[in-house]
């Protein structure tokens, strides 16, 4: 008797549970899973957007991909971009969070303004900065630099500077978000531990590196991975500010996918690129889960 009702309960729970998640899961199947399977299928086809062809051609796209200097170029650029964005973003947002969490002068104001770019669309942000970063003496940034006797470069049209420009643009755009997340963590730090350390005579640096940073570590790791993955998806900034140039030096993977698919019409090859990007993101996501487990293990 009891057995039976338990079974019925289980069935009831199962039906209710699935009823709750079905809308989300159904959408997931159609908007994520199905396209993901398709992208693998496309990647083994000769598929051209302009010609409308789709013919199975085995691993040909992958063979071409390995031989394609633009692919390795885009991979390297993505790496450079992430290597620029992630540390800058983390360091500055952490420092700002500590400053703002300390309740020093003007914190509310600063908290307000650094969040402005976050609520601004990436397109608008990129448009404005494209003007500000004009070369010669035409751009306001170079005009400011000329006040202190520096002749600014042609930011978006010189190799190196272009990458630096999009990195800084991107860091400023998203900084506010990470600052807020870190602030949440800073405010949740156990005050007594820090106070105790301070009474023990810990210097500022020791206090930061030995006490505060380890306390913030789980948040830092989470933010780091999210920022890395976010930095791999940079599209609007690149498209509007540099169009992948000069010399393809800001042609990152997502933009190369767009180029191959929608400018060169080679959707099959672009799908192979997308598969590579997917695998990279998958590995990073796995790393995140692994690191979460490890950190919580240390904590307990």
């Amino acid at each position: 008797m009891k057995q039976h009702s338990l079974k019925a309960n289980h069935r009831r729970d199962a039906i209710i549970g699935w009823a709750f998640i079905t809308p989300q899961m159904a959408g997931f199947v159609f908007f994520v899973l199905l396209p993901l399977v398709s992208v693998f299928l496309y990647s083994v086809q000769e598929k051209n957007l302009l010609f409308g062809t789709s013919v199975f051609n085995g691993l040909e796209n992958y063979r071409l991909l390995l031989a394609d200097p633009l692919f390795s170029n885009s991979l390297v650029n993505t790496l450079i971009f992430s290597a620029g964005v992630v540390p800058l973003n983390l360091v500055f947002s952490l420092l700002l969070a500590l400053y703002l969490g300390g309740g020093k002068m003007g914190t509310r104001f600063v908290r307000g303004i650094i969040f402005l770019p976050v609520v601004t669309s990436g397109v608008a942000w990129a448009i404005v900065w494209k003007y500000l970063l004009q070369g010669g003496d035409a751009g306001p940034i170079n005009w400011f630099l000329s006040l202190i006797g520096i002749e600014g470069p042609n930011w978006l049209f010189e190799k190196g500077w272009a990458m630096a420009s999009v990195i800084v643009n991107r860091v400023m755009k998203n900084l506010g978000m990470n600052v807020l997340i870190f602030m949440g963590a800073v405010l949740n730090m156990p005050g007594d531990v820090i106070e105790a350390a301070r009474i023990d005579g810990a210097k500022r640096f020791t206090l930061f590196f030995k006490i505060k940073l380890p306390l913030l570590m789980p948040t830092v790791m989470m933010v780091a991975i999210v920022t890395i993955i976010g930095s791999m998806r940079v599209f609007d900034t690149i498209k509007l500010m540099t169009d992948g140039g000069p010399e393809g030096s800001t042609m990152v993977m997502v933009y190369y996918i767009y180029h191959q698919a929608f400018r060169m019409f080679d959707t099959g090859f672009a799908s192979a690129l997308a598969v590579v990007l997917f695998l990279i993101v998958l590995v990073l996501t796995a790393l995140q889960w692994f690191s979460r487990k490890r950190i919580s293990f240390y904590e307990s």
Binding site: L70, F157, E247, G248, R263
Partner: peptide, 15 residues
């Protein structure tokens, strides 16, 4: 389309 995209990256070096 291919020629345009690929050659532009090289042409950029001129500037």
């Amino acid at each position: 389309p291919q020629i345009e995209v690929e050659s532009k990256m090289v042409f950029d070096k001129l500037w």
